[in-house]
Design a protein around this nucleic acid. Structure first.
Lengths: 231, 231
DNA sequence: ACAAAAGTGTTAAATGTACACCCATGC
DNA sequence: GCATGGGTGTACATTTAACACTTTTGT
């Protein structure tokens, strides 16, 4: 090949901060894997790995998540690319970090851990992480909090059908505040991106709540006309 | 070395979308360079180049800007990392894109173009760009517009001392709207991040306006207490 | 004296915030 | 029948939006 690269090439990896809401414990969780190799053997780390030559960055992120955690078709958004010279003790490694949102309903157990040791951690009970993953995770968390306020990403953490109280609790958990129930509902009503379904909650020992669905198409439409989601 | 990389490595570059406001023409400009090599010989492109092994990504971005355009110590913020397999016809190249803001006052002429052919283009008179730089630039523009609303980045496009009308015109140019002068001033007054200096505009053929300075320290302080800039 | 931009307050409308009770269901 | 969360409206405070004239300076 006539084209030559003048400098030694860095390695390129993807790493993912996968978030989910634990409604029982009322907290935000992140998925970590325990490393089976040096460096940082047995340390916890973000799932991720090297980018192959024949796949795009997002494909690499999806593949690594599938391989290491069994998760497929989840919401992924690029976070930041970390490229400090010394972030990997072996050699120069540039990591394209992603944040991912999943809804845990029924997925917690099924999240296949293959050979890999994977577990969900509360953000306030984090172990120390390999490489600069602690920093990546804290920036991912900050981004999630920021984004939640002005983009409808919260729905990615909920099942397809959800109650308004679940949605409210989600916001309260992530933003660590509390909202007035009536005002919260009024606001959502005015945003006009929820579809009220005919269905109601099942198996609860109190009055069953109505289930809603997020109207992605309508949201995209409104967004393209300059509408600004904000909660 | 015992560590081996299993796959062919992609090349890694940085590319920068450098913006400035042209107050005379009342528009937003971007700095492009004309390529002196294949592929895309003679096409216009974003300034950028390969990341060296001994420099971080932001260092690479600063170095390339210095080398290709003479610009130093300017505001740089990471935009996105582009890694589609076919974005460079030669081989796999991953580009970490940045957006940069400079104030043109006195810099327009002095922007040293070295051996490279560099020029400022209006965003509505863009040539077709090399690689996927057209896409990168349009995403950078979108990001700048979005960011302007809730972060005080506009000041990076102004000289140290500026008038309130300049600031307002800047917002109007980038966001393509117009604001009421009194309301705009009231809002800024309440944000309370501008320092009113003793100086006034020079060499204008009408009443000279008072000059202001952006108080970065105060802003950082307010921000850390949960204050939310918004315009 | 006139052209050109600087500077300055008030009012009405819209939005956000605080607040308390009845309802439906399962046990 | 009681415990648990579901669901609903109003009044007040705050914020935003619309609007026009006087001042200063250079030519």
């Amino acid at each position: 090949m006539s084209f030559t690269y003048k400098y030694a090439r860095p390695a390129v990896t993807v790493d993912c901060a996968v978030f989910a809401i634990d409604f029982e414990k009322e907290n935000l969780k992140v998925l970590l894997i325990r490393r089976g190799e040096e460096p940082f053997l047995n340390h916890w780390a973000l799932p991720g790995g090297f980018v192959h030559t024949d796949e795009s960055l997002i494909e690499a992120a999806h593949r690594e998540l599938q391989e290491e955690t069994g998760l497929t078709s989840i919401y992924l958004e690029q976070l930041y690319t970390y490229g400090n010279v010394d972030r990997d003790p072996r050699e120069r490694v540039i990591s394209v970090a992603w944040f991912a949102l999943v809804n845990l309903e029924g997925r917690l157990l099924e999240a296949r851990t293959d050979a890999v040791d994977a577990a969900w951690f509360s953000l306030d009970e984090l172990p120390s992480l390999a490489f600069d993953h602690g920093r990546i995770l804290s920036e991912a968390t900050e981004r999630l909090r920021g984004k939640l306020k002005y983009k409808p990403v919260g729905f990615e953490l909920l099942p397809e059908l959800f109650t308004l109280s679940q949605l409210q609790r989600l916001y309260e958990i992530i933003l660590d505040t509390s909202f007035d129930k009536r005002n919260f509902r009024k606001k959502l009503q005015k945003l006009d991106v929820l579809i009220e379904t005919d269905e109601i909650q099942k198996d609860v020992s109190h009055r069953a709540a109505r289930l809603y669905r997020f109207d992605r198409d309508k949201y995209r439409d409104l967004e393209s006309r300059g509408f600004y989601f904000e909660l």
